[in-house]
Nucleic acid binder design. Structure first.
Lengths: 99, 99
DNA sequence: CCATTACTTGGCATTTTCGCCAAGTAATGG
DNA sequence: CCATTACTTGGCGAAAATGCCAAGTAATGG
């Protein structure tokens, strides 16, 4: 039953459905960050964070740009902050006003 | 690092991050359905669908009501259709206009 | 060049999720 | 009552996701 389209949409949603990835999304909503910053934020090994970032990039949520030896990640989809606010509102039991 | 709040939000997102659950969400956006309808829709065992429904209910996305021997499920959050449209738009490579 | 920093990728063990079957519960009809 | 329908729950093997370590790559500084 699940169409290719459905599967693609699931991959997009799954890319946010993990504590580290959600925290990364929240951080990037406030501005770009390099990988080391995000490693410090989520507290996992850099290799782990790197893989999370790849997933999110493949899903289209984020993009990156290399500057010298650092790689800076930033949002790739304008929807994301609204999306996160919506989920946060639902999480607090309230109704979401934005969406 | 991941706070309790973050973990809760992740559970809410995860409740949509599965082909069967996404299809159920899309179906319920068009109106209420009983479990048997949804079993036919997703093509899995009824016990499997029942467990998906429980997850979605615990996340707050849906509610249910028993009518006779049937259980009808319906949306529990007004955000959901907008949310789904947004994901669908992202999935098609376009920018999301609604959110 | 060579060492160092900043990352990415491969591999693999551990944990989590998934989905079926079997069994249990609740409402309806005869 | 008893059988049937419509579900839910428990259990468990199979599949997928997660995260660390080790190894590989690219840019910079000396």
């Amino acid at each position: 039953m699940a169409s290719l389209t459905t599967q693609l949409q699931v991959e997009i949603i799954k890319a946010l459905a993990h504590p580290a990835r959600l925290e990364i999304a929240q951080a990037l909503s406030k501005g770009e960050r390099c990988v080391s910053d995000l490693v410090e934020l989520v507290g996992s090994d850099m290799s782990t964070v790197s893989k999370h970032l790849r997933l999110m990039r493949e899903a289209g949520w984020i993009d990156c740009e290399k500057k010298g030896q650092q790689v800076f990640y930033h949002l790739g989809c304008d929807c994301l902050p609204t999306f996160l606010d919506c989920i946060a509102a639902i999480g607090q039991g309230g109704t979401c006003s934005d969406c």
